[in-house]
Design a protein around this nucleic acid. Structure first.
Lengths: 340, 340
DNA sequence: TTGAAAGCGCTACCAT
DNA sequence: ATGGTAGCGCTTTCAA
């Protein structure tokens, strides 16, 4: 063990009372000094004494006590169930973090693995966040939104496939991905389109709307869409590739670039020519796609800048009654390369 | 705007006092009922009345008030600066989450983007977490550890390359990765080994020790290690590949599988035979590596099970004085495939 | 310029 | 079986 137990005798956490005592002032003065309260003038020597005392004791204010007194927090809660993967969401997340921090909010990610919508909403409400940004992994229902608002959340924003009653919903409709993919494949003359649907749990919220978009774009064109269950492993891909000729497809939208790479390799190993026999299309436009041979056609997604969302949240927090328009915010367009 | 402003007239958050009033009991009784306090017997009819009142008001207890009263929290803080990428860390994270939740801890990820070690430690301490698990992205120094412990953190655990004084350090020495890679490459007879060092910020904490491990393993063998700066984009990889013959290397450890894929493609496009002219080795054993041609040799990392860490934290929380051995916990071994 | 004190919401001790 | 109440740490009004 690397800790030396010699100093840890004073196991008591220093409070502003301790600082006040050491500095020889009242708790009020301590609060004034450490918060730079401008409405009150404190002499410079006193300020120094207080700061020195705080420093010496290693005083850190108690956030819970502070927000209890204040009646509200500056916490923006970002519930996460699955860690979002990929540079797209990563970048968006980071941008949002920075922007919110600039606006003086405390950003907290709260793991909500395996909670139902109601349990999750309750757990979040206990923390009394001033805003909640749900990325659509968790099913936040109208009742949950109501609960959060009643618990003091000024802004409840959902980013996801569907609008949620009561919340401010930024609709990032993953169907756009399917629509963009279908548009491209149809344009290239493909008619029997397969659609990979990952079997891994947690991906339905992406895969289902992507498939739905594909179907929607295809209606009335005479083309067909065939869902193809597949896991993200070689065996599953090989099994799918083995029955490829029976499927009689001339194109496949592989859910995303990673599944596309996996399937394309399996198809090639099974002697299926890409794109001669079957076109393959991914999504997310990972760098990887350009490195494959043939180069992978994909769908590029565009998320709103994190700054935009941060500003929206800030506006909602300050003027909760304000009418802010919901809007469809995710763009998706095909990036044709060699595989289709 | 999708919210109807009709019901939001009562903007007041219900407290246990409101529940008590509605149920016609005291706040104490409300507390007893809602917390199932076993030390006190409450009649069944009363319980029902209280629960009904809580339900009707949409009462949610105030976590801050509760922990203020209790004098401690059950919060485990996981600071995050960069979102950890890759399935390895993702799985580890999820496991840890589940295990801690099972032990009745509240897991909170706290974004600490761009904070210095001292600022970060202070910000964390304000939340009075009972435990802090730093994944080594942030430089937590001994002073910070001290601050956290003084603020009531029973367990401060760091997972990273180096031990931190005062904290319980699980050393996950990334040098092992370099050592494993070098071992394999030397065994195959390579002598002039390149080492890709990503130029992207935030990766130094991995890349530096990996390089150091490579160097360490090579000392005394007569082989040499040549650092090669590279960004994760095609231009940078192509530029590196263009001067490949001048470098006169017979092997390269490419930091990880993704950089390896990128570089290998660039080398092939530049007419460099892999592995004939130059062996390429990645790390992290992504599925992708098996799909490349030649199949990518890599280094497999092994992290401790999340359950292990959760149990460790729980033990430290309950018996802070307990002597728990620090231990090197990351395993790394070469997975030879065709590219080397 | 500084201090005394109320009170945020909650739980747990002590009465009744 | 239930209620009264002190007090966790903090900020802020009001008084001095």
């Amino acid at each position: 063990m690397s800790q030396s137990p010699k100093k840890s005798a004073d196991q008591t956490v220093p409070t502003s009372t301790d600082v006040a005592r050491l500095a020889g002032v009242s708790r009020a003065t301590v609060s004034y000094v450490l918060n730079n309260t401008s409405a009150v003038r404190i002499s410079e020597p006193t300020r120094r004494r207080v700061r020195a005392a705080a420093e010496e004791l290693g005083y850190v204010p108690h956030a819970a006590a502070r927000s209890l007194r204040a009646g509200h927090t500056r916490m923006v809660l970002l519930p996460t169930a699955h860690i979002p993967v990929g540079p797209l969401y990563g970048t968006f997340f980071n941008e949002l973090h920075w922007a919110l921090r600039d606006l003086d909010y405390t950003v907290v990610q709260y793991g909500s693995l395996g909670l139902t919508g109601d349990e999750a909403a309750r757990a979040w409400a206990e923390l009394r966040p001033v805003a909640v940004v749900s990325l659509g992994e968790i099913t936040l229902n109208p009742r949950g939104v109501q609960l959060l608002k009643r618990s003091g959340a000024k802004a409840v924003v959902t980013l996801g496939a569907q609008r949620v009653e009561g919340a401010h919903s930024l609709v990032m409709d993953q169907r756009e991905v399917g629509i963009a993919a279908a548009g491209h494949l149809l344009e290239r003359g493909h008619r029997r389109i397969g659609a990979v649907v990952p079997e891994e749990p947690g991906l339905e919220i992406f895969s289902k709307p992507r498939l739905a978009g594909l179907r929607k774009a295809v209606t009335g064109t005479g083309a067909t869409v065939e869902p193809l269950a597949m896991r993200y492993d070689e065996e599953s891909a090989a099994a799918l590739a083995a029955r490829w000729r029976d499927l009689a497809l001339d194109a496949v939208f592989a859910y995303n670039d990673e599944y596309a790479q996996l399937l394309m390799r399996a198809l090639q190993d099974a002697g299926v020519d890409v794109p001669g026999h079957t076109a393959v299309m991914g999504a997310d436009n990972l760098l990887m796609g350009k490195l494959l041979r043939p180069r992978l056609s994909t769908v590029q997604l565009e998320l709103p800048p994190g700054q935009y969302l941060a500003d929206l949240i800030d506006r909602l927090v300050r003027h909760p009654s304000e009418d802010v328009e919901d809007s469809g915010l995710m763009g998706a367009y095909a990036v044709p390369r060699e595989s289709s």
